[in-house]
């Protein structure tokens, strides 16, 4: 999964992004119901997304996209593929 594309960006599972990192959605997989739910919440191709914080117990993780905040369990976040610039900001 962790492949470097020719434009120098990595694609990765959203669940692997560290807190403070941000990326752009490049795909959503998983079963149809989860995919529809994630897409409808705004995880469309091209949407930018930022990892805001982890819950104190490690899961779920809070994200920001389209100007609002939502949290996903790792189990769901791994179905979102994101492209991010080489290194996380923090």
């Amino acid at each position: 999964m962790e492949k470097t594309k020719d434009d120098g960006r990595h694609t990765q599972r959203l669940s692997k992004l560290p807190v403070g990192a941000s990326g752009v959605v490049v795909g959503v997989d998983g079963d149809a119901e989860l995919r529809r739910r994630l897409l409808e919440m705004g995880f469309c191709n091209g949407a930018s997304i930022e990892v805001v914080r982890k819950a104190p117990l490690g899961d779920p993780v809070e994200y920001r996209l389209r100007g609002y905040h939502l949290s996903l369990r790792q189990e769901q976040a791994r179905h979102v593929k994101v492209a991010h610039s080489a290194k996380a900001t923090h």
């Binding site: 998983g30 079963d31 119901e33 989860l34 739910r37 994630l38 919440m41 779920p60 809070e62 609002y68 905040h69 939502l70 949290s71 996903l72 369990r73 189990e75 769901q76």
Partner: peptide, 10 residues
């Protein structure tokens, strides 16, 4: 059944 995705708006 039904993955019951945890998607929680903050």
């Amino acid at each position: 059944g039904g993955a019951s995705p945890f998607i929680l708006e903050m």
